[in-house]
Amino acid sequence: MRLSTLKTAACGLALVAAPLAASAEDLLINGQVEINTEVQPADHMKGIVPVVRSGWTFRSPETQVLQMDDFDNPGMIFVDQGMSLWQTGDGETGESCADCHGDMAESMEGVRASMPKMNPEGTDLWTLEENINNCRTERMEADEWAWESSEMLAMTAAIGKQSRGMPVDVEIDGPAREWWERGEELYYQRVGQLDMACANCHEDNYDNMIRADHLSQGQINGFPVYRLKWGGLGSIHRRFKGCMKNIRAEPYNRGSDEFKALELYVASRGAGLDVETPSVRN
């Protein structure tokens, strides 16, 4: 609310617009794609946080700027790699993704924003990675890509980018409900020798410094993310693992039911935030 008022005001006043453009709320990519990085909480988040904020708003100006122009964004070369993999035939059938799906910009638009979601049979919650691997094994008769492989990261980055600027909107009712509830439980479950839950840091203490780190809300609207610390892209589940290890907990595996449930729940906490893939973080 406050935000849109500010933005409207800025449109009328060129002089005021300059400082606002540099403010933390405004992420404009290539001077073109406007990204909502602060939104009102969805119904299921009311009373939990007053404003839903992208991790971008917590980063230093030096890190933020890397995401404001695709030429500066170190994640973009992986998007390009994903685009060429899309055209490359593989597996027993020799087909490429493009053979069936055509232009990625059209067929994959909005897909990231709705993931994870129930599979077509409604029997399992599938992440983007699992949807891709299902096409590879069932439709192309090709080997699965490992969760954190360079191919999978490139493909999820390329597909994710087709949703850039579209609001996260995951289905949390119907058959997905059970998964969502499990995810919520995990989010508040204290784990590890330090005995902390995700919520202790990302809900109760976001915007506080924890030693050198400015705590964010732990949103996943920018994944796979390019982390300067990693010097490359990483998946959502890699980040979850890292946070669990830091509190001396035994992390769940990538692709485990626990992390899938947590992914759905965390995605829903960021409902309304625009997809930023590939985001850049320190």
């Binding site: 479950q189 204290r190 784990v191 590890g192 020798q193 005995d195 669990m244 290890k245 001396r248 907990a249 035994e250």
Partner: peptide
């Protein structure tokens, strides 16, 4: 030294 949930073995 409780039985913390999902504590790492070494701890």
């Amino acid at each position: 030294a409780d039985d913390f949930t999902r504590n790492q073995d070494k701890f």
